[in-house]
Simulated assay, not measured.
Amino acid sequence: MDAPLTDAEASVMRVGRLPFADAASLLAGYGLVLHHVDPGAPIPGSFWGEPEAGVIAHNVYVRDDTPVHSMLHEACHLIVLPDERRAQVHTDATDSVIEEDATCCLQIILADALPGVGRERLMADMDAWGYTYRLGSTQAWFEHDADDARAFLQQRGLPFR
């Protein structure tokens, strides 16, 4: 049985609160397909298990109870990869520290493109879910310690601010 959610985890914005078409359109702009999984069904390609998002090649899988930060995080793993590596992804996108950092940075940036989300909300949700950074919060990391991640994104022609 899964451990009960903490109050902080329970407050995290879920995919079911977004217009699905908006999220799908955002990801489609990066060559990804967003798939809606039925309630209670297993999420294909989920590394951490339900309700976390899953990835397989250019596909991102979510349920209504998937946290928005998880959908963006897994999608951004695929976005930062070259096409030939993206095609090989199934469940575990990378073991590269810089790709992980770039993924975290990009998910914060892309949150601004989702109505009702935005970077401030997403960073608060990331903290509530348990993301940890040496500066103590997602916002502190993003504002003061993510230069290498931004450089990585910029080199690949991706949004970096």
Results as ranks from 00 to 15, higher is better:
59 N>S: 10
20 F>P: 08
87 A>R: 14
56 I>Y: 14
32 L>W: 01
29 G>F: 01
29 G>M: 02
95 D>C: 09
106 L>M: 04
65 D>W: 03
95 D>T: 11
109 I>A: 11
113 A>K: 13
86 R>V: 07
51 P>Q: 08
119 R>K: 08
158 L>H: 06
149 A>E: 05
152 F>H: 13
17 R>D: 14
66 T>V: 03
22 D>N: 13
60 V>I: 11
121 R>Q: 12
124 A>D: 12
133 Y>V: 07
49 G>R: 12
75 A>G: 06
132 T>L: 03
101 D>C: 04
56 I>E: 15
101 D>Q: 10
139 Q>W: 10
40 G>S: 09
145 D>I: 00
113 A>Q: 15
127 D>F: 01
84 E>W: 14
66 T>S: 15
118 G>Y: 07
147 D>N: 08
89 V>H: 06
49 G>K: 11
106 L>R: 03
102 A>P: 00
40 G>F: 05
62 V>Y: 02
155 Q>T: 02
74 E>S: 07
51 P>E: 05
41 A>Q: 15
130 G>H: 07
75 A>M: 02
58 H>F: 06
142 F>H: 13
10 A>V: 02
37 V>C: 12
84 E>S: 15
33 V>Q: 14
2 D>P: 11
119 R>I: 00
57 A>H: 14
8 A>G: 10
115 P>K: 06
150 R>T: 00
50 E>N: 12
80 V>Y: 02
45 G>Y: 02
25 S>W: 01
100 E>M: 02
118 G>S: 09
120 E>W: 08
115 P>W: 05
133 Y>A: 12
59 N>K: 02
9 E>A: 15
143 E>R: 00
158 L>W: 05
101 D>N: 07
134 R>N: 07
49 G>F: 09
86 R>P: 06
31 G>R: 06
62 V>K: 06
144 H>Y: 09
13 M>S: 13
27 L>H: 02
124 A>R: 11
31 G>P: 04
46 S>A: 13
119 R>T: 03
50 E>T: 13
59 N>T: 00
121 R>W: 06
21 A>C: 05
85 R>D: 13
142 F>Y: 15
130 G>Q: 05
123 M>H: 06
82 P>E: 15
124 A>F: 01
26 L>M: 03
134 R>H: 08
1 M>C: 03
103 T>D: 08
75 A>H: 02
22 D>Q: 12
159 P>V: 00
55 V>H: 10
146 A>H: 04
82 P>N: 14
42 P>C: 07
63 R>K: 05
118 G>K: 07
12 V>Y: 11
141 W>H: 08
159 P>I: 01
19 P>S: 14
106 L>H: 04
45 G>V: 02
81 L>M: 11
142 F>K: 10
92 D>F: 09
36 H>W: 09
3 A>F: 08
119 R>F: 00
56 I>A: 15
19 P>K: 15
115 P>I: 06
30 Y>G: 06
67 P>E: 10
154 Q>W: 00
59 N>E: 12
128 A>V: 03
124 A>P: 08
87 A>H: 03
